[in-house]
Each structure stands twice: as C-alpha cells, then as structure tokens.
Nucleic acid binder design. Structure first.
Lengths: 147, 147
DNA sequence: ACTATGTTGACCATATTAGTCAACAATAGC
DNA sequence: GCTATTGTTGACTAATATGGTCAACATAGT
C-alpha cells in the first residue's frame, strides 16, 4: 500500500503552484525548492498537462501554472494521473480478471478499502492543502528558501 | 496504492483455513484450491508462522492451521506481515526520513490516508470474512472444488 | 526405512521505479 | 533574425521489488 515518488512529488509540485498564486513558474525553480530532479519532474508534469490540470508555456520566461483554480483540483485526480487507478487490486475495477470475482469476499474487502482511500483523496483539493499550509504558519516563502 | 500478491494470497489462504474449521490442512490442498504456486505459498506462510497466526505440523499428514480463533485475526495483521507497514509513505511512521516533516501538509494527508486504510483493515477479522462468505451462500465446498 | 509433508536459503526472470541524456520545439528579448 | 531560455519527447539505464523456482534439509506418520 505504498505511494511512489510520482504521486508524492506531483502533489508537492502542484501545492507549490497553488501557494505561489496564479503566476507562471519555471520548472527549474520548483525543482530546486522541492529538491526534485528537474529531468525527472518534467516527466511527472507531462500527464498533468495532458489532463488539463497544468498549463505550460515554452520558451524564455516560460514555465507552468495551474490550469484550474486550486479548489477544483482534487487529490484523487492527481494521484490517479500519476499512480494509476486507486484500486488496491485489479479485480476491483475489472471483475473479469478473476473468475471467482462474483463469489469472492476478499474482493468485497478490497472494494471497501478502495472506497476508504478514495474518500480521503476525493475530499481534499489543492485549495484545502494550501489553507492547511498557511494555517500551519508556513506559507510559501519558507518552503521556497528551504536549504 | 496497490496490494501485491503476497497480501492477496495470504488473506485468501487464511480465509480458506477459517472456512475449513480447525483442522490441519496440507499446503498442497490449499495451493490447489486457491490456484497458487505451492512453492511460492510456502514463502508466504513463513512470516505468518513466525508471527504466531498460523501453526504448522511437519511430516506425513502434516499441514497448517490457524493458531488463533478467526475472530482474533485482523486483516491488518495479515497485511502488515506480508506487505510491510500500511503507511503510503515512509515519513508517516518515521518523520526523520524527511527534513520538512514538521511543516509538511502533504504528510498530514498521507497520515489521514493511512488512518483510513488502517481503519478498514483493523475492523475486519477472518471471522467476519468467513461470515460474509457463508452469507453469500458459498461456503467452503464450492471454493474447494473450483478448478 | 520410507514416504509425505513443512522449512530454509539460494537463485532467477521480469516489471517497476527513479532517474538521466540528447535531440528537438517554441518563445522572449535583443 | 539570432540567441538564450525555457518546455517536450523518447530512448536509455541502474537499482529494486515482485513473483516465482529449485535443491537440500528437518520431521513426523506408517
């Protein structure tokens, strides 16, 4: 039940965008403040751009910004885009993968588990995270100049 | 957020033991009815034996059985033994792994996520699963002879 | 003794993860 | 229009995890 760096990094990057406000931010700056490899980050961003969560601007003084207001971006979206389906096992979304799906009670448990996970991730938006961050008394500046 | 075969197989094996009642069952039989490689299953069982969830008997007419009543075996135990800690990311259990843990709101989300997962797995025992299976109208026999 | 089981550790193929590199595309500013 | 600065893409790679097999051994029943 682990999250890979994709999901973790992705959420951090988008949270930083939310905290910075609406401006376009070069990948390099985010990579530095989040201490993520720039080249790796580029690959993380790609699916977020395709999905219309992030908008990018090429060329000098380019960068990325949120394509939607933070309150419209749920964590579940981000995690699904970067980690794939939430389901702990395949048969949850796709009963056909296992012949005993219809009789299987372990599947029922995994369904319940998926719902529990999804309910947490559906209930939080980037706006919520940004608010949490601000109420911790550490807005963007501190994160920015870390290290 | 995926479960490996270890966790899935492990739960299925133990559920079959619970459904069969208290008797000692050869690994071979379980491997056959669950369609799991016997040699792989042996490795799955080992940590369950060490943890005192399963008792084994060597030699002719040997096998395994539950070491405790099914209602005392929570799914969370099984999953933890076979998959490792429930936490979606390391910093949840071990804040020291990341210098920003104390200021990090994404960590707070992962903590919430862990709690949601744990709450599902803590609330279900093998007894509950066995009951669910029986009330589905498909007790052990059907599972047993499933090819 | 012999056979039927479980135990252990070494081994292996494949997939996934986490990244790097190089070539390219587009934009701003001169 | 040139150049520096950015993002885009696909190929590549090292390390690790996954899912399994094999062989040697330990132990119990007949």
């Amino acid at each position: 039940m682990r999250l890979s760096t994709k999901g973790r990094y992705g959420v951090r990057v988008l949270l930083e965008l939310a905290l910075r406000g609406g401006g376009t931010v070069p990948l390099k700056d985010i990579a530095r403040s989040q201490q993520i490899s720039l080249l790796y980050m580029e690959h993380l961003i790609a699916p977020l751009i395709s999905a219309g969560i992030v908008k990018s601007v090429r060329g000098a003084r380019g960068g990325i910004r949120l394509a939607k207001p933070p309150e419209e971006i749920k964590l579940s979206e981000i995690v699904k885009l970067l980690e794939g389906p939430i389901s702990p096992v395949d048969c949850v979304d796709n009963p056909g993968t296992c012949a005993r799906s219809s009789l299987c009670v372990t599947r029922d448990i995994w369904i319940e588990l998926k719902r529990a996970i999804e309910s947490v991730l559906e209930s939080k938006t980037l706006y919520d995270l940004a608010e949490m961050q601000r109420s911790k008394g550490h807005a963007f500046t501190e994160e920015m100049y870390y290290i």
